[in-house]
Design a protein around this nucleic acid. Structure first.
Length: 833
RNA sequence: GCCGAAGUGGCGGAAUUGGCAGACGCACUUGACUCAAAAUCAAGCGUGGUUGACCCCACGUGGGGGUUCGAGUCCCCCCUUCGGCACCA
């Protein structure tokens, strides 16, 4: 065996060999359990960054572990390859997006090879290739046919920097999720997916996801934003028009002292027309229109009366109708009933504009002033109905039900559930995306492209110069076509799909990556899906993960898949930081994985990223920590080098006491116990706990124990059988984390076959029981001494020995022993006073 | 404001079921090897007190209270940090 750990020679050698042997290719066989381990596929930006290294190292160790445990492991990778940076490269550097993307893919694929990730490369997909986006278009048509795709004019989020619209999920704090430019509101006609039709299921099925992080489920639930309440219909005095409001507090209906409409509500103009208030109303509406709905939060509440009045259905009272900027058109009905006594926003508004405040809920304890005019703030808590006619005295929850029922009986309302979720806007005014497969015909209207004509190909020669309509709209060869229905000249849709559409179904494609008849074969998907373990960043908690869940449910309803949820277990890993913040080009705090691999090797990079922090937390990059990981691998190498003569002895060498471990000396039995305990723990840490950091630390402890044994046991007494077993198992459990060095040592020591095809080592449960235990002796809960005893010492003997310990005596002198608590194998606690 | 997660040495973190707090690693200190350095190996390394030394004692997991023989872990209150949602009626 070589004396030096020459990673730079070892790693390229095995990389090539594994690839030639197709070591990680997997096919549907069915005679072994399957496991689908998936990491979120990357955008091919050009280079892997440390976040990728961490994400893929995590997934790879899981995949390798289960492979060794006898599973057929589907572990694929691909490229989320449509998107704006490719188009920007075209604009800035004159390189075509397709070429730019393919070059980046080639480079990143090479980096992944160097890192030794165990992918089945035959299954690689790229969303920008026609053989993939053909099926993205197919998915669009599926939604279209099922009535889940529609075109509508709406006020939408526009990113001026990306020159395209964005979905609500893609606006973060009022800015574009990708480039952080503040978004603007624009009135445009766009394509939407009716994700709101699945709001209830998307919310309800979160319960099934018991192996998802709580915070992701909470974020999705918040995003869906379910509210239960009632719709109440008010009549406009004089005209008989109706204004419907949504409220979660029908129990406060007797407390209504005004109505408010959103400035964009079309009723506003109707109501004010011809009245003296019309000028002020129009001015307010115009003012509000200038401010994006999402930025209104910081605005002062402003409002004006419309001059119209409404009749409260429950008591026939006249209340004024106002317009105010604190009501949003996009939620509910764009109209709200004002109950200042029991809603803080209404309270502030009423105080500012001198509207009356009427108390209709009395809390159980501590009276709220009966006269609303004395209130200092709205009372929003529970209580009993007052000033509410025949409903007086009801508990509020009961009041909600009874008043809603009354409204329903009298045709003035009904129970209503509202969701905050909006439909998914999928049009993008960009070139580098999957075309929306629709044709507009002057005679036939909107006509979907026939499935047989898919894919609608992106034309290669387009004009990328910025400004004006999107490149596709400026490409007559693309735009001009014939109507599939009537054959007359027609125009293609020139918007492309949101790239989140491409990534919302890719995990299905890996099952049948090259099928040209269907997006996937049922037999493949039924076998491999759902994904058993999905790993990625938290940033996709409500974007990618929500869209993928939605699409899966649509496919389920269409009978195309047999599962309702695509990702069984989800793990969200933390960021890689340097100087406390995420690595980014703009901050200039980048560590290039290429440099680390060149300097220390891929195994070191992998071991460091897995060891330095628990996977879910942020990982602060540390060059010294990397050196620590490198030192550890060198210690493993040296250990193997030193043990080689022992390992290679004919018939495995000798062991004092023969091959029966129970006859071995104590040091041998102790080392064997640690070995077997470590094998068990590492398996649990990867498979059950997802704590790769503690898995590696326990392997380090094993290595340390082996060094101690070598140093402390005289050479002639060292147990070759044990050391051989220990080294072999050590390599096997380290293999998922450090695939190169373990493979190399495995072969240098003369063991057969790839280490990565070996079964996970067995552990002997009987070997785990320590023969001797250290029992802590406490007095009043404080540790005063320790006893080392055989593990099977009877509890009575244990207590006796503890009470007789010399160090204990001073603490017992002059005191009475109340009781003695003992836990065999752990402690004795003597309670005195 | 509502919801969620977290808070442990100089640093990253461990403690899986209520049972020795600080595993493992980094940094640091000392020693061995060396002409020297690097590498490697060995020892030490929570805070305070005490001692010639060994020992020993007290305190210690964001703060305060509680349950328990025993709390980093369970309960209540509070503080801080991070994340999500937010005039959503």
């Amino acid at each position: 065996m070589q004396e030096k750990y020459a990673f730079h020679l070892i790693e390229p050698k095995w990389q090539k060999r594994w690839e030639e042997d197709g070591l990680y290719n997997v096919d549907r066989r069915g005679n072994r359990p399957k496991l689908y381990c998936l990491e979120m596929f990357p955008y091919p930006s050009g280079d892997l960054h440390m976040g990728h290294v961490r994400n893929y190292s995590l997934g790879d160790s899981v995949a390798r572990y289960y492979r060794m445990r006898g599973y057929d492991v589907l572990h694929p990778i691909g490229w989320d390859a449509f998107g704006l940076p490719a188009e920007n490269a075209a604009i800035k550097r004159g390189i075509h997006p397709a070429d730019w993307t393919e070059q980046n893919i080639a480079n990143m694929r090479q980096q992944m090879h160097r890192l030794g990730f165990s992918y089945d490369w035959r299954r690689e997909v790229a969303t920008c290739r026609p053989d993939y986006y053909k099926w993205t278009e197919w998915m669009f048509l599926l939604l279209y046919k099922r009535g889940l795709a529609y075109k509508a004019a709406a006020k939408v989020n526009w990113c001026p920097s990306c020159a395209t619209v964005l979905a609500n999920e893609q606006v973060v704090n009022g800015a574009c999720w990708r480039c952080h430019t503040p978004v603007e509101q624009r009135q445009l006609e766009q394509w939407f997916f009716r994700i709101t039709a699945y709001a209830e299921q998307l919310l309800e099925d979160l319960r099934m996801l018991t192996d998802w992080p709580e915070r992701v489920k909470v974020m999705q639930a918040n995003w869906i934003g379910k509210s239960e309440g009632a719709e109440v219909t008010f009549t406009v005095e004089g005209t008989g028009q109706e204004i419907t409001v949504f409220t979660t507090r029908p129990d406060t209906l007797f407390g209504v002292t005004y109505l408010v409409l959103a400035p964009e509500n079309p009723l506003v103009e109707e109501l004010a027309a011809g009245k003296p208030e019309a000028v002020a109303v129009r001015r307010l509406a115009a003012e509000a229109a200038r401010v994006a709905a999402r930025q209104r939060t910081e605005q002062e509440k402003i409002g004006v009366p419309t001059g119209a009045w409404a009749i409260n259905p429950v008591n026939g009272e006249r209340v004024p109708i106002w317009v105010a900027n604190y009501v949003v058109m996009e939620y509910g009905t764009g109209a709200v009933m004002g109950v200042p006594a029991h809603d803080q926003r209404d309270f502030e508004f009423a105080r500012k504009f001198g509207l009356p405040v009427r108390v209709v809920i009395q809390p159980q304890d501590g009276p709220v002033p009966e006269e609303g005019e004395d209130l200092e703030a709205a009372y929003e808590g529970p209580g009993t109905l007052v000033n509410s006619g025949s409903f007086d005295g009801l508990p509020w929850e009961e009041g909600k039900k009874r008043i809603t029922a009354w409204l329903q009986e009298h045709g003035a309302g009904k129970p209503q559930v509202q969701y905050r979720l909006r439909d998914w806007l999928i049009s993008r005014q960009r070139y580098w995306g999957a075309p929306i497969p629709l044709i507009y015909c002057d005679h036939c209207g909107t006509v979907p492209v026939s499935e047989n004509d898919l894919p609608v190909l992106l034309p290669r020669n387009v004009d990328f110069r910025p400004g004006g309509p999107s490149p596709l709209a400026r490409c007559p060869e693309f735009v001009n076509t014939t109507c599939p229905r009537c054959g007359r000249p027609a125009r293609r849709e020139t918007d492309t799909m949101d790239t989140f559409m491409c990534s919302s179904w890719y995990y299905l494609r890996y099952a049948s990556p090259h099928d040209d008849q269907a997006p996937f074969q049922p037999a493949d998907v039924d076998y491999w899906l759902p994904v058993d373990q999905y790993i990625g960043g938290i940033e996709h908690a409500v974007m990618h993960l929500l869209y993928s869940r939605f699409l899966t449910k649509v496919l389920y309803d269409a009978g195309l898949v047999k599962f309702r949820e695509p990702f069984q277990r989800l793990f969200t890993q933390g960021m890689v930081t340097l100087g406390g913040s995420a690595m980014s080009k703009s901050k200039g705090n980048i560590v290039d994985p290429n440099d680390i691999v060149a300097k220390y090797g891929a195994d070191t990079a992998r071991v460091f990223t897995l060891f330095a922090a628990p996977p879910e937390r942020d990982l602060e990059w540390s060059e010294q920590g990397v050196e620590g990981a490198y030192r550890f691998l060198n210690r493993v190498w040296r250990l193997a080098y030193e043990l080689e003569p022992l390992v290679r002895q004919p018939r495995g060498g000798r062991a004092q006491g023969g091959n029966d471990p129970s006859a071995w000396p104590k040091e041998d039995r102790e080392l064997r116990r640690l070995l077997h305990a470590t094998v068990k723990k590492v398996g649990q840490d990867i498979g059950e706990r997802f704590m790769h950091n503690t898995a590696i630390s326990s392997i380090m402890e094993l290595v340390n124990a082996l060094y101690d044994y070598r140093q402390n046991v005289p050479p002639e007494r060292q147990n070759a059988v044990l050391l051989r077993e220990a080294l072999q198992k050590l390599l096997l459990i380290l293999a998922p984390f450090a695939p190169y060095i373990t493979e190399e040592i495995w072969h240098q020591l003369g063991w057969e076959g790839s280490i990565h095809l070996q079964p996970w080592p067995q552990w002997d449960e009987a070997a785990l029981a320590a023969e001797e235990v250290t029992v802590v002796v406490q007095v009043n809960g404080k540790v005063r001494d320790r006893l080392v005893l055989p593990a099977d010492t009877p509890e009575e003997v244990l207590r006796q020995k503890a009470l007789q310990l010399p160090k204990i005596q001073p603490f017992l002198a002059g005191r009475t022993v109340d009781k003695v608590v003992s836990v065999p194998g752990r402690l004795v606690n003597i309670v005195v006073h």
